[in-house]
Design a protein around this nucleic acid. Structure first.
Lengths: 349, 349
DNA sequence: CTGAAAGCGCTTACAG
DNA sequence: CTGAAAGCGCTTACAG
């Protein structure tokens, strides 16, 4: 049989209201220590546990927070979620996580579901702006506070916590420039989404701000490892002496595609070509050579997002947050070669 | 103002019970089509949405399923979760996912929390057997059905869905043997957990079953990329002609550590040394050279687990499931070199 | 200091 | 065919 408050009350010889008061540690001056002890002991002996659903119904608070993500697999999502959950844990909140896998109709469906579940707030990462404005308005109607992470929502007004993408691109580019590279290739995702565009712009800006002339090449690879691999195979496959000595890839995945193509064509990294990535995937460290890249503070984004949401839930004012990425030096970057590049250089030594 | 059934009822000029009946599509013969239309229209006009908490309280069903994992970051966890969630989606269930990050006390806490939330079932992945038997008993007391994934729970009795680890190890080993390798090194995780042990045993068994004499070496690296990297650096670092021509690593991570060490010492893969991993991480394909490995059916494990749980929730009989892993051929394996191995072989050509 | 009562928003036997 | 009533397990003003 299920142990309810009534049951505990009977055992402790009090009414269920008293049980509620004692167990919630509320109105402490309103009952004697003796009663308190009796209740506590009865609850303990029966291993009583409150029914959170009932409490939620009564208090009009579900203790749930909704998290909407494009997918679960993507590199930094787990860390983001972890950050959110750790804050929730300390506040007796739970997260309900949904991943849309890029299907807009699922997005709408999940928002509705989360509303139905009476979540007390929502954190949304919507990289391709698939969330419609009217859905956002629905959330407002239900007084559900929303925080956008990494990317603004379509309304542009929802409080967001983001990472400075352009700064990351600048750090990567300036690192290559300071090593002496004067011809840099950018594997871009300019047309893919806002992060790709911001990284592209950060790269351009860094180059323009540099006092010397820099030769730049851009290839759109749309976050795709395959495209990066193929484009670099073609570009460096034919013996050329004027190929860029450095590559700034807009993601670790595309950087790894480039590296694989270069290694297969006999180039040495970083001796012949330097490569910088972006993201700091776990593999960035495991790969050969270790990938110099831009690390994003994934876990802190989650933490901040949840803290902001908490403030909103309590009706406190919030303002957007911008976090800074960081350059991680590994073995894939070095000064450019003294001799001009030539295919199969390393195999010939 | 919040739209409740009472509100819809008033608007449709019926009682709230009728609203409930119509909206739940139950007792269809119990009201006229006209009433039905009136209710439906009123609900629609008011954008009525049922309160799932209230329904759950009444029906004694939370529509939540708990998922307990060691972490969110580990390679195949996201796919596993996705499989679980997709099945849940089709059944109007939601998952509450907790990751313990290997802290046993968190495990106990989360189980309790999930009980408090009145989850209708639980899926648990507990690789290091941190869950205590009495916690499992508590779950039973609350009539919460449990499914173990990938690894048995401490009681050994909970229905489980697993992947045949020994078979995976056998597939990997036989692949190397069939290529002609007669000296194989196993980077093991024998002492780390049951998966490590099963993979180790599968390897041994495959070698013993082989008609020819096979030289085997074992190094315990405990799932650690670092340890694999260091051990292989040492073993292959000193010029030796008798080093194994093939490595079966108990995970992709350790395989990648080995590969990095080998490449740094000038060995060519697969020309000088063949390497097989285990897991099929996304990076297995992206690395240089593409990693031959054992793929585990991650998503299907999630699907099956949830389907089993569903059966249990409906009081139907269930039996354990064992899924088969699969060999994925890429570029890191080939026949052994004709000349004996020597350090820096490739650099010398 | 303690209890009786109302109510959160539903579902479902039970009458009529 | 429809409604009144009870009840899921809590919390919280309101009396006493």
């Amino acid at each position: 049989m299920r142990v309810t408050m009534a049951y505990v009350a009977r055992k402790a010889n009090v009414s269920h209201c008293t049980v509620s008061r004692v167990l919630n540690n509320k109105y402490r001056h309103k009952y004697t220590e003796a009663t308190r002890q009796r209740v506590l002991q009865a609850a303990d002996e029966l291993s009583y546990r409150p029914n959170i659903l009932a409490r939620g119904l009564r208090k009009q608070a579900s203790t749930f927070v909704g998290v909407l993500l494009p997918d679960l697999v993507n590199s930094f999502i787990p860390n983001l979620v972890q950050g959110i959950q750790d804050v929730c844990d300390s506040k007796d909140l739970s997260t309900v996580v949904y991943s849309t896998r890029l299907r807009p109709e699922r997005l709408e469906k999940y928002v509705q579901l989360l509303i139905d579940k009476r979540v007390e707030g929502m954190i949304i990462y919507d990289p391709f702006h698939q969330l419609q404005e009217r859905t956002l308005r629905r959330l407002q109607q239900h007084d559900i506070p929303v925080i956008a992470v990494l990317v603004d929502l379509c309304d542009g007004a929802t409080t967001s916590i983001k990472i400075d993408q352009a700064l990351g691109a600048r750090l990567a580019t300036e690192h290559l420039l300071s090593l002496g590279h004067r011809s840099i290739l950018h594997l871009s995702a300019e047309n893919a989404d806002s992060h790709g565009r911001e990284r592209y712009e950060g790269f351009l800006k860094a180059v323009q701000d540099y006092p010397h002339h820099i030769g730049t090449t851009m290839i759109e690879v749309d976050w795709s490892w395959d495209k990066a691999y193929e484009e670099i195979s073609v570009l460096y496959g034919n013996a050329r002496t004027d190929a860029p000595t450095a590559i700034f890839a807009s993601s670790d995945a595309t950087a790894l595609g480039a590296i694989k193509a270069l290694l297969e064509h006999g180039y040495r990294i970083p001796d012949d070509v330097s490569v910088v990535g972006f993201d700091d995937l776990p593999y960035a460290e495991m790969s050969y050579p270790g990938l110099t890249t831009i690390a994003q503070p994934k876990y802190p984004v989650g933490e901040h997002a949840m803290s902001l949401l908490l403030r909103m839930m309590h009706g406190q004012p919030v303002s957007p947050v911008l976090l800074e990425p960081q350059l991680i030096l590994r073995q894939s970057t070095a000064a450019p070669p003294e001799q001009p590049l030539a295919k199969g250089r390393s195999a010939a030594t």
